[in-house]
């Protein structure tokens, strides 16, 4: 017989163990999950189906995967990054700023290290392409590149003022 409380507890533990939610905030997630389940159960769905639908709706597939799954870790990392970007409407989020600083530092370092002008230009072009390509894992829009450039510019201006 399906034990709903046990299923919810296990699922929430997996979500925490995959670092999708912090342990100190998991009670909030649990309540949210129960709310979705209760809404369905009140409409006549059985508890097991309601649980499966709710966990699928919440969209943490990595909680269903084994803890040792490399694919789970990659997806989890991407989801955390996407959640951080999409959940933060500030252009100067630490993630955006950090990403901008890392790439800017790499480009500057290459410009200083590589003596030959032609090689320098080619390396810079490759790094610029790499910078844009990295947005495919963060947010594949030109707007994000502009946002990041503006963020870096503001950071430098603040430091110089």
């Amino acid at each position: 017989m399906f034990d709903l409380d046990n299923a919810v507890e296990n699922w929430c533990n997996k979500v925490v163990s995959h670092n999708i939610w912090d342990a100190d905030k998991v009670d909030e997630l649990k309540d949210h999950l129960y709310c979705i389940i209760e809404q369905d159960v009140n409409s006549g769905t059985n508890e097991q189906l309601a649980f499966e639908k709710a966990t699928s709706e919440l969209g943490y597939p990595e909680a269903e995967m084994g803890a040792s799954s490399g694919r789970a870790k990659i997806i989890q990392r991407i989801c955390r990054v996407i959640n951080k970007i999409e959940g933060n409407s500030s252009s100067d989020s630490p993630l955006v700023l950090g990403h901008a600083i890392i790439w800017a530092s790499v480009m500057l370092a290459m410009a200083l290290v590589v003596d030959d002008k032609d090689t320098n230009g080619a390396v810079l072009m490759i790094l610029t392409l790499g910078w844009f390509a990295s947005f495919m894992t963060l947010d594949g829009t030109k707007a994000s590149a502009k946002k990041e450039w503006a963020c870096l510019k503001r950071f430098v201006e603040r430091k110089m003022s």
Binding site: K25, N83, E86
Partner: peptide, 12 residues
Amino acid sequence: WADGMLYPILHR
């Protein structure tokens, strides 16, 4: 809204 969107905003 997804929960993944709402809760980080609430916490912030």
